[in-house]
Simulated scan of single mutants.
Amino acid sequence: MCMGTNSNREPVFRFREFSVVNNMAGMKVGTDGVLLGAWADGDGCAKALDVGTGCGLIALMLAQRYKALKVLGIDIMDNAVCEAAENFKLSPWNDRLSARCIDFNSLDYSFGKFDMVVSNPPFFTTALHSPDSARKAARHGVNLAFSDIIRRCAGTLLAEDGRLCMISPSDAGGDIEFNVALNGMCVQRRTDVFTRQGAPARRIMWQIGKKACTMKHDSLLIGSDEYKLLTSPFYL
């Protein structure tokens, strides 16, 4: 059952080929989600899982980019799932998108393996928690940790040639690299995201797979020509 709204959220975000209502999901549409949706590589993938889909932004972006890709978006918040389902229904790709209220850690094997798992997961595991329960679940690692995602993808959730794409704070880099190695996986691609020249990286985008590889390591500056080129198929 869908109920409640959040008056502090912008009601509609309009992109080039779709719109996103973001009035009930815990987290507002932001740069992290747009970056990951534009950056994640879905070439050759037929089936993707968006973990913590929220309003469905990343799933919609992937559906726009990859015309044969089917995406299942999951979230533990009923309101977010209802909002994502409505956004999917109103999009040009409603036949390839679905939303379910499922805890990632309880996702069973009936869904089969995924060619791609993508997530903009909870941050700030040690920060003060927001009193808003939806925002708390979206912002903090109380329900899902990077280690959980990596562990399950290393198991039977991800296809052998599949990839896990996610975004993290820069200070989580060491922990993520440790868990990748612990679970016998490999960082295929890493992009450090900077908000201004000369400042430390604020975010890291990761592509992780099961097979041994040589990591491609690059960087991206918000507002640069490269950033504008990456996001131009989406922003008006």
Results as ranks from 00 to 15, higher is better:
residue 137 A to E: 12
residue 234 F to N: 02
residue 100 R to I: 03
residue 160 E to I: 07
residue 81 V to P: 00
residue 39 W to C: 07
residue 29 V to Q: 04
residue 19 S to G: 13
residue 50 D to A: 04
residue 107 L to R: 04
residue 187 V to A: 09
residue 76 I to R: 10
residue 170 S to L: 04
residue 44 G to R: 04
residue 236 L to Q: 09
residue 210 K to T: 03
residue 25 A to M: 11
residue 99 A to P: 00
residue 34 V to N: 00
residue 186 C to P: 00
residue 73 G to T: 09
residue 64 Q to T: 02
residue 52 G to D: 08
residue 142 V to C: 09
residue 82 C to H: 10
residue 73 G to A: 13
residue 69 L to F: 01
residue 68 A to I: 03
residue 81 V to W: 09
residue 151 R to C: 12
residue 131 P to C: 02
residue 172 A to T: 08
residue 143 N to W: 08
residue 35 L to F: 11
residue 105 N to G: 01
residue 234 F to W: 01
residue 166 M to R: 02
residue 160 E to K: 14
residue 18 F to Y: 11
residue 194 F to N: 00
residue 115 D to R: 05
residue 106 S to G: 09
residue 160 E to G: 04
residue 189 R to I: 05
residue 148 D to W: 05
residue 150 I to C: 12
residue 70 K to I: 11
residue 213 C to N: 05
residue 234 F to S: 01
residue 107 L to Q: 10
residue 16 R to I: 06
residue 128 L to W: 07
residue 147 S to D: 14
residue 30 G to K: 12
residue 181 A to K: 15
residue 28 K to W: 06
residue 224 S to M: 01
residue 179 N to Y: 10
residue 130 S to D: 13
residue 158 L to W: 00
residue 150 I to E: 10
residue 187 V to L: 08
residue 156 T to W: 10
residue 108 D to I: 03
residue 126 T to Q: 14
residue 111 F to D: 07
residue 36 L to Q: 03
residue 219 S to V: 05
residue 92 P to H: 00
residue 192 D to A: 15
residue 151 R to M: 05
residue 132 D to E: 11
residue 229 L to A: 15
residue 119 S to D: 12
residue 20 V to Y: 06
residue 168 S to G: 07
residue 3 M to W: 02
residue 55 C to F: 03
residue 50 D to C: 05
residue 166 M to L: 15
residue 128 L to G: 13
residue 28 K to A: 07
residue 190 R to N: 07
residue 40 A to G: 04
residue 70 K to T: 15
residue 140 H to A: 06
residue 162 G to Y: 02
residue 143 N to V: 05
residue 80 A to R: 08
residue 102 I to W: 10
residue 226 E to N: 10
residue 186 C to G: 09
residue 35 L to I: 08
residue 48 A to V: 06
residue 148 D to I: 08
residue 2 C to A: 14
residue 31 T to R: 02
residue 41 D to Q: 10
residue 104 F to Y: 09
residue 182 L to I: 00
residue 57 L to A: 10
residue 48 A to D: 01
residue 102 I to A: 06
residue 233 P to C: 09
residue 28 K to E: 05
residue 115 D to L: 01
residue 110 S to L: 06
residue 45 C to E: 01
residue 133 S to R: 15
residue 124 F to Q: 11
residue 49 L to C: 09
residue 66 Y to S: 06
residue 93 W to I: 08
residue 213 C to L: 08
residue 188 Q to F: 09
residue 131 P to D: 08
residue 222 I to H: 10
residue 79 N to V: 05
residue 46 A to V: 05
residue 87 N to D: 08
residue 47 K to P: 08
residue 56 G to M: 06
residue 23 N to R: 14
residue 200 P to K: 12
residue 197 Q to S: 14
residue 16 R to G: 04
residue 2 C to S: 13
residue 52 G to I: 11
residue 14 R to N: 13
residue 138 A to V: 13
residue 91 S to T: 04
residue 65 R to N: 04
residue 156 T to I: 06
residue 144 L to S: 02
residue 226 E to K: 14
residue 167 I to K: 10
residue 15 F to I: 03
residue 49 L to Y: 09
residue 49 L to P: 04
residue 87 N to A: 11
residue 18 F to T: 03
residue 192 D to R: 14
residue 203 R to M: 07
residue 17 E to W: 05
residue 167 I to S: 10
residue 42 G to Y: 00
residue 126 T to H: 15
residue 182 L to F: 12
residue 166 M to P: 00
residue 165 C to Y: 11
residue 119 S to V: 09
residue 164 L to N: 06
residue 146 F to V: 03
residue 219 S to Q: 12
residue 181 A to G: 05
residue 79 N to A: 13
residue 87 N to W: 07
residue 205 M to G: 01
residue 38 A to T: 07
residue 11 P to M: 08
